[in-house]
Structure formats: C-alpha cells, structure tokens
Design a protein around this nucleic acid. Structure first.
Lengths: 75, 75
DNA sequence: CGTGCTTACGCCGGCCGTAACTATC
DNA sequence: GATAGTTACGGCCGGCGTAAGCACG
C-alpha cells in the first residue's frame, strides 16, 4: 500500500469514475485502473462494484476511504 | 516526497545510524543513504549533521519528523 | 456506435545490490 | 584495520502510455 494507490482510490470514489480520476491525476485511464487493481489485490478485497458502466464503492471500502483521506490531508 | 522516504528518515533519526536503519528496513546501506539524499534534495535542506561518524538530525528536521511519524502511525 | 473499464504489450526510468572509495576512531 | 557513510555502476522490475478488446446503454 502506498500513496499513489490511496490518491487514486480517493479520486475514483470522489468522482465515481476511473476516467475522470485519471484526468485529475494526469494519468491515463489504464494506469489508474491498474493502480486500483493492485490495491484490491493487496488487500484481497473488491473495493468497487460495477454498477452498469459506473463504479460504486463496496461497503468494505468505507473504512479505507476514511483512512486514506486522513492521510492525504496531512500531505 | 513519499512513504519510503519518510520511513527511511524516521528510522535513521530513531537509530541515529544509516546502517541500523537499513537493517530494519531490509535494505542495504547505500539504498537508504540514497533515499535520504533524495529527500534532502527535494526539500532543499540538509536533514542531518555529520557528528563524527554519527548522524545528528538538523534543527530543521524536527518539524518533518513530527509529520512523518504522524503519517506512519496511521499506516 | 459512443463511452467507460480492462487486458496486452513494449519501452524506459528508477531502485536495488555489489563494489570501490573516503573518513572517523 | 574496523566501522560508518557516500559514490559509481549495471541489471532488473514496475509503471507508464498506446492499442486492442470487451461491456453496457
């Protein structure tokens, strides 16, 4: 787990979109997608549920979101 | 600035030694040394004063140490 | 078919360890 | 000469973008 992952995760939740998060992070969509995947792999849980074409944060993602934002705030 | 740098910085301060920090971080001495250098470069300040063979945190390092530990605690 | 996410793939930069050098005791 | 830190260097792995594939409306 590292900052890049937390930033990506936070942005995707905030915007509800990998594409939009990618724009804000100045990265391409696949790059952000991969970062999210790697985070899910590490944690061993799915952080998002595909809802049609959109991503909805999974319930388990809530606690991580709080921690992530807490850390990013300090940055 | 990233987590690796903060971890390295924190360990070097804690132990007063790059070698010992390297052992704890499971890295070699040169690797840790380089991370510290990169952090100092980024910040544009010297974080340590060479006191004989030991490293003493520079006064300017104090504020960073507090922030670093705060962040690492959350991890 | 347009929009969005993932998979595939090759390139390139950065990180790591080894080795050599410098300094302090 | 032992111990600690830095500098030099080469190899390798990971992250990036491009492109192609897949799914939903």
């Amino acid at each position: 787990m590292n900052l890049k992952q937390l930033r990506a995760f936070s942005e995707v939740v905030k915007t509800g979109s990998v594409s939009e998060a990618a724009r804000r992070l100045h990265r391409t969509q696949p790059a952000v997608s991969a970062v999210i995947s790697s985070l899910e792999d590490e944690l061993g849980i799915a952080l998002f549920i595909r809802k049609g074409m959109r991503l909805k944060p999974a319930p388990e993602a809530q606690f991580l979101l709080r921690e992530a934002n807490e850390i990013l705030e300090l940055w």
